[in-house]
């Protein structure tokens, strides 16, 4: 790896997610690749969900930060395959989520065949990111952003968000 490529990668790795600013795009697993084609930096990102409204912000943030670091020519590409998985959130990212009061995801289901129907409430072994209690209730599988479910804690009575496993 050239020094320029290493520099571009380290700069791109500092860009944070617009909706989860405690996480970098790299820690979220959204930044898939940073390459150097001659003078041009080519960064590849993938949406967490198909309707992710933050893709334009992520692109603009990457372009701005890389330009500020002296890379005049920056291109941001989209990748859809393989589809983003919550398993790609790094250990550092998980720690940052928990620190910010957001419960990090468990292992994502791995399936090749049909997705089995689940009519019972989703059960996850997780603890309240504020007080550590495991006495938590699922409020809704859909939270303020596509990637999060909503929980409440029976011990400290606080609501909290949980990043869904996909």
């Amino acid at each position: 790896m050239t020094a320029a490529l290493a520099h571009a990668r380290s700069v791109a790795a500092t860009v944070t997610d617009p909706e989860l600013p405690m996480l970098t795009l790299a820690d979220l697993g959204v930044l898939r690749d940073v390459a150097l084609e001659d003078e041009r930096v080519v960064a590849t990102i993938t949406p967490t969900y198909s309707g992710c409204p933050a893709m334009a912000s992520m692109r603009d943030d990457l372009v701005r930060v890389l330009r500020r670091s002296g890379f005049a020519d920056v291109e941001v590409k989209v990748s859809l395959d393989p589809a983003w998985s919550s398993d790609w959130i790094s250990a550092r990212g998980r720690a940052a989520l928990a620190e910010a009061g957001i419960s990090p995801p468990g292992p994502a289901p791995r399936r090749d065949g049909p997705v089995p129907l689940t009519l019972l409430p989703v059960r996850r072994a997780l603890t309240c990111p504020r007080c550590g209690s495991s006495e938590v209730d699922l409020t809704s599988e859909f939270g303020a952003t596509s990637c999060k479910a909503l929980y409440s804690c029976r011990s400290c009575r606080e609501p909290f968000e949980h990043v869904k496993e996909i």
């Binding site: 969900y49 589809a83 019972l120």
Partner: peptide
């Protein structure tokens, strides 16, 4: 491209179906 869009959609629509079913 279509295969990738579909694979991504499967993860999402599985949540939609189970929400509707529950």
């Amino acid at each position: 491209v279509l295969a990738a869009i579909a694979a991504k959609g499967v993860k999402e629509v599985a949540y939609h179906r189970d929400y509707g079913g529950r």
